[in-house]
Nucleic acid binder design. Structure first.
Length: 115
DNA sequence: ACTCTGACCCAAA
DNA sequence: ATTTGGGCCAGAG
């Protein structure tokens, strides 16, 4: 249970409805192996269309050894949005799940997760 | 209080 | 195939 101060409004308990961040975690964790989802798709599934960017921010804030399958999230063009080594790491993990790349881009029509 | 910057997206040009 | 402009808004300085 998390208590969060809000200045002049005292404290409130954050355990009732999940925050956007928590919904993102939930959605990402349910992407099956060998499938991918786009940032925009995650945002939409989390109930906040047009907030794709924030999904990226949430994922970027994940703790180092997170068990969340962050590598299954790619951008709308089927590419990794991570720079350099991180991007290669993501592609490596996806290849390990059977995803094939064509010049560092995968086919969304083929691998996109459809809940 | 304000500016800058994004693990983004998409329609239009 | 590429570029551009607008939408979005939480952090960091």
């Amino acid at each position: 249970m998390v208590l969060k101060g809000r200045g002049d409004e005292g404290y409130r308990v954050e355990s009732a409805e999940p925050t956007f961040e928590q919904r993102v975690w939930q959605v990402v964790s349910s992407i099956p192996p060998g499938c991918v989802a786009t940032y925009g798709q995650i945002a939409e599934l989390a109930g906040e269309p047009r907030r794709a960017r924030h999904v990226g921010r949430v994922l970027g804030a994940l703790p180092k050894g997170s068990r969340l399958p962050w590598h299954r999230v790619v951008n709308a063009s089927g590419r990794s949005s991570l720079p350099g080594a991180a991007g290669e790491e993501q592609r490596r993990r996806l290849r390990d799940e059977g995803v094939r790349f064509k010049q560092s881009a995968l086919s969304l029509s083929r691998y996109r997760w459809e809940p």
